Amino acid sequence: MSGPRVTIREVARAAGVSQAAVSKVLNDGYGVSAAMREKVMRAVTELGYRPNAAARAMRGRSHTIGVVADIRTPIVAQITEGIEEGLQGSSLDILLAPVGKAPERQRSSIDAMLNRNLEGLILIVPSLPRPELEALGQSIPTVLIGRHGGGRHFDSVMDDDVAGAGLAVEHLVGLGHQRISHIAMPMGKFRRPSVLPQTAREDGYVIAMRDHDLEPDVITTDYTEEGGHTGAMTALRRKKPATAVFAGTDMVALGVLRAAHELGLRVPEDLSVVGADNIPVSALPQIALTTIDPAGKLNGSTSTRLLRERIDGRRNPVTHAITPSLVVRGTTAPPRE
């Protein structure tokens, strides 16, 4: 038969720390040093301490965070991997709600998660109106990924999409291109500064083109392979076709490559193509797509860090912008004479 249950007081005495420190380690409080965590967990193991699950339930702790995302978007896998990495060493679990882009579907999934008494929420590229997001942030620790503009009651992590688009244009202009088209996605009902990545990328493209005294050429379709195909056909069937296309995402770029093949154009000899997101398929030798790397895993791990700080009591909003990089591969080259 087992003996009396070991208490937090005994763990604290064995570790040589306060009971508050033990509680903070066991509850995954943010800011605990590695040395402190090691001392406490060593005492927990040696004494055989087991947290009282019933007491935790009474305090309302679920030790679970919710992640709401459109899993059809390839970069979501990278972001989710980063979120999981950020939870290593903690007792927090992930509850993933796969949704589409429709606000109604996102709203329904968020409501269902709130009923589960979660510790916090990470929303990947949410399309809900800004007032709803502010209200949500007041009710539960919340971090948004990919939504520009920041907020008063939630934290935000996003790529500097304006700078990323600038990298693409600078690269193509440096190769000698002047007729550079950009395939974008509609802005929708959003208003600056609270916009989604596609609007920020379009803004960055327009700014960079005008900085070089070049005329922007924005073709609005959607962020799919078919949208890229449609946009590329528009850009390449003109009397003076584009010599380069900056696609809003890598999936869009795949559609551009298909259109170029159908028109008998060689990439990069006849057409240069740049994508964005650096999804795994882009690195395949058969594709070798030049693309903007938005550091998806870093987005995820950073959002987890901020959420844990929120859960631990921080209230002031944080907006964290990640600087993207350009990965140059085989789909870009100087234009033909």
Results as ranks from 00 to 15, higher is better:
residue 261 H to C: 06
residue 110 I to Q: 00
residue 71 I to V: 14
residue 267 V to S: 06
residue 273 V to K: 09
residue 300 G to T: 04
residue 258 R to D: 12
residue 92 L to Q: 08
residue 147 R to N: 00
residue 70 D to R: 12
residue 211 D to P: 00
residue 21 A to R: 06
residue 263 L to Q: 10
residue 45 T to N: 13
residue 116 R to V: 01
residue 219 I to R: 10
residue 182 H to G: 01
residue 20 A to S: 14
residue 190 F to E: 13
residue 85 E to R: 14
residue 26 L to D: 02
residue 282 S to Q: 07
residue 70 D to Q: 12
residue 96 L to D: 01
residue 291 T to M: 12
residue 98 P to C: 07
residue 143 V to N: 03
residue 81 E to N: 13
residue 306 L to A: 04
residue 329 R to Q: 12
residue 129 P to K: 09
residue 11 V to F: 04
residue 40 V to N: 02
residue 229 H to A: 12
residue 74 P to I: 11
residue 109 S to I: 01
residue 186 P to C: 09
residue 126 P to G: 02
residue 106 Q to M: 08
residue 44 V to G: 02
residue 134 E to N: 04
residue 48 G to A: 07
residue 108 S to Y: 07
residue 336 R to Y: 04
residue 33 S to D: 02
residue 221 T to C: 11
residue 274 V to G: 05
residue 118 L to T: 01
residue 70 D to T: 09
residue 31 G to N: 05
residue 271 L to V: 10
residue 136 L to T: 02
residue 239 K to T: 15
residue 35 A to E: 15
residue 225 E to C: 14
residue 269 E to P: 02
residue 282 S to F: 05
residue 223 Y to N: 15
residue 136 L to F: 06
residue 162 V to D: 03
residue 161 D to A: 12
residue 263 L to V: 03
residue 98 P to T: 05
residue 170 E to S: 15
residue 98 P to F: 07
residue 336 R to H: 11
residue 254 L to F: 15
residue 253 A to R: 11
residue 123 L to R: 03
residue 257 L to N: 08
residue 265 L to E: 02
residue 28 D to K: 09
residue 27 N to T: 11
residue 317 P to N: 05
residue 212 H to V: 06
residue 213 D to S: 12
residue 335 P to S: 09
residue 4 P to H: 10
residue 76 V to L: 09
residue 236 L to N: 06
residue 125 V to G: 06
residue 322 I to G: 04
residue 91 S to Q: 11
residue 28 D to F: 06
residue 326 L to R: 11
residue 234 T to F: 10
residue 63 H to L: 13
residue 210 R to S: 09
residue 223 Y to I: 15
residue 177 H to T: 07
residue 25 V to A: 05
residue 329 R to C: 10
residue 46 E to A: 14
residue 328 V to A: 07
residue 242 A to I: 08
residue 262 E to S: 09
residue 286 Q to K: 12
residue 151 G to F: 01
residue 334 P to D: 02
residue 330 G to K: 12
residue 172 L to I: 04
residue 177 H to P: 03
residue 118 L to D: 00
residue 173 V to R: 13
residue 154 F to G: 00
residue 248 G to R: 10
residue 103 P to K: 06
residue 17 V to L: 07
residue 222 D to W: 15
residue 226 E to V: 13
